[in-house]
Every structure is written in C-alpha cells, then in structure tokens.
C-alpha cells in the first residue's frame, strides 16, 4: 500500500513535467513570445539543478553552497566538448553531439564531485556548508586559469599559460566564446525527466532509505551498520553529476559564457528554489523553480528587486515555517495533510 502510494505520487510528478512539455510545445507553435522561448532551456537547467541540490540538502541533509561550482565544471566541459566535436566531426548528428556534451559534462563533474566529496563529507553542519562555499569559489578561481584552443580539429589545453596554438575558444576569465547553441527545449525536458527518474528511484531504494536514515540520526544509522560515508558520498556524487549535466546543457544554450556567472549568488538562487519548493520535496522543487524563474523575468520592472525578494522569502519561510503555532494551524487546515502518527513520549 505504502509503496503503491509513492509510485502514484512519482507518476504525478512525471505527469506534471510531461503536461508542461506538451503545453509549451503547442504554445511554441502558436505565438509564444520570443523572450519566453529564450527562457525555456534555462528553466529546464535550473529545474535539474534544483532537483540535484534538493538531493543533497533535503535527502542527505547537508547544506551545500557550492552547487554553482559543479554547474560551472559541467558547463565548460560541455561547451568545449561540443565545440570540439563539431570541429572534428562536422557531419555528426547535432543531438548526438549535445548528448555527448551533456554526458561528458556529467562525468567530469562526477569525478570532481567525488574528489571534493572525500574531504567535505567528513565535516558536518555549518562547517560543511562553508567548505562547499569555499570549494565553489576555488573551482571558479581554478577555471579562470585554464586555456583551450582549437587548431583545425585538434584541441589544445593548458593551465596558466595562454600561449597555445590555434584559435582560442576558452580564454581563462574571459570564458568560452563561439558555442554552437545546440540546446533545445525537448532536450531540457528529457534531462528533467532523467534527473527525476534518477533521484526518485534513488530515494525509494534501499540506498535512499540508508541516506535518509543517516540524515535523521547519524549515530543511530551508524550503529545499525549503515556505512555513512558511502551513502553520503552516493548522494553527493549523484547530485554533482546531475548539476554538471544541467550546466552542460545550460552552456550549450548561449553563444558565450564566463565563469563569473557561476558565483555564490547562483548557488544561493538554486538554494532558494529548493527551500521554496520544499526541502526534500521534488515535485515542489520543479514547480517552485519554474514559477520563481518566470516571475521576475515577466515583471520586468521588478527584476532589480529579485535577490531582495528571494532573501525576504528565505527568511519568512524559515521563520514562519518553524513557528510551532503556525505549523499546527497549517496541519489542521491543510486538505492534503498526512495522518499524524502518534509519537512516543520520549520523542518530545
């Protein structure tokens, strides 16, 4: 029974994404404004980023403030890969190139995630948050030292030395230029569905339950034989890989992109999407990301207040959401509430 209700709930989540895709596809043929069209792929990327961050924050219970760093690694790997593949194999199918770029971005970020995860996941709470933030900045600093150039179909790369043969495609802090803009809406929706499938299946698996047990009570989980490092690592690396894939798709949507795009502000923005959608709630994350991304862009005059409004929202959701009085009130009026389980006395 329990398993069945989860299955239905997941189906609803997939259904929402597919319905949104159908509506948008229909709307695109029937006079969707060009500014809205331009936002479709970024929205998809941010949805995937928010889903992946929610895996770390909501399911694994670790506040990561360096998600934009993973996005950056994926973005630049993906953009360099697609530019190079197109130069080397001009007749290759464009969607295949995009797929290779996204997968390449995902794999590189996965490796980076594993390397960063080994030291980071030994820490806890506030320390972990600040170290992920530090890593996000270090990634950006290091990416600024790389140079890549294309000489015919040959790719050259160097660290800290801009004198490499051929035409420069990735120029340190100047970022990458001349990306072929292969990304499209369908690819974005496919990536969302892929990310949802990965995350939802992980949550409902044995490993997912181990991850959540670790989050809820580290010591109890450890004492029943759960390998904490392994499961924390699993969530962290999966989250990083998905963020890298989203980054790769994102970079392939623009002609040029700089590493300054992937600063702490971007990490915080993704965190706002997660918090507003509900920590640990994937369906909420998808909806909240879409709405929150659309809102300031639609209200043009409003856009300078965007970060201000995000900040106020973060504080209000946390302060009001943790207010016991309001929480009880909401429990009583919420039509979708889950039946309250009787708690043991010792719990309180």
């Amino acid at each position: 029974m329990k398993r069945n209700s989860k299955f239905v709930s997941n189906l609803i989540t997939y259904g929402i994404v597919i319905a949104a895709w159908l509506i948008c596809s229909f709307w695109m043929g029937n006079g969707m404004s060009s500014s809205l069209k331009a936002m479709l792929v970024p929205i998809c990327c941010y949805v995937v980023l928010a889903i992946s961050l929610n895996l770390t924050v909501g399911i694994s219970g670790e506040l990561s403030l360096g998600h934009a760093g993973f996005m950056a690694i994926g973005a630049f790997t993906g953009a360099i890969l697609s530019t190079w593949i197109i130069a080397a194999f001009p007749e290759m199918n464009k969607d295949l190139v995009l797929t290779l770029a996204v997968v390449g971005g995902g794999v590189t970020t996965m490796i980076a995630g594993a390397l960063i995860g080994i030291p980071v996941l030994r820490l806890r709470g506030d320390y972990l948050a600040i170290v992920t933030l530090a890593f996000g900045e270090i990634i950006r600093n290091i990416l600024n030292m790389f140079y890549f150039s294309l000489d015919g179909s040959r790719l050259f790369g160097s660290f800290g030395n801009p004198n490499i043969p051929g035409k420069m495609i990735y120029n340190g802090a100047m970022g990458i230029k001349g990306v072929k803009m292969l990304a499209h809406f369908n690819a974005g929706v496919l990536l969302i569905l892929f990310a949802l499938a990965v995350v939802l299946n992980l949550i409902n698996s044995r490993s997912g339950r181990a991850i959540m047990a670790t989050r809820d009570n580290r010591i109890a989980a450890e004492s029943v034989g759960i390998n904490i490092t392994k499961y924390k690592m699993m969530a962290f690396v999966t989250s990083a890989a998905l963020a890298g894939m989203a980054g790769a798709l994102y970079a392939n949507n623009f002609y040029s992109i700089q590493s300054s795009k992937f600063n702490v502000d971007t990490s915080i923005q993704i965190l706002v999407f997660v918090v507003m959608g509900g920590i640990g709630n994937m369906r909420g994350t998808v909806i909240a990301t879409t709405l929150l991304y659309l809102l300031p862009e639609l209200l043009r005059d409003f856009s300078q207040y965007r970060m201000l409004i995000y900040a106020i929202m973060l504080i209000l959701v946390m302060v009001l959401g943790n207010n016991p009085l309001l929480r009880n009130l909401w429990m009583n009026i919420n039509p979708f509430r889950k039946p309250l389980k009787r708690r043991a006395k010792a719990d309180e």
Binding site: G125, Y305, A311, I312, L314, M318, V319, N322
Partner: peptide
C-alpha cells in the same frame, strides 16, 4: 530572524542567516 529559530534545526538557522546576508546586501544596493 534568529530568535524565533532557537529550537529549529541548524539547517533552518543557516538558511535564514544566508537570507539575512542577502537582504542586507540588496538593501545596500537599493
């Protein structure tokens, strides 16, 4: 911002603190 969260989880407090930080930055910007 922080006093109402004395009993809350450290995750909630940290997110609130980040919110306050961005609030101050953006107010200063305005």
């Amino acid at each position: 911002a922080y006093r109402p969260l004395r009993q809350a989880t450290s995750l909630a407090v940290l997110i609130t603190a980040i919110g306050v930080s961005y609030l101050l930055q953006n107010l200063a910007l305005l």
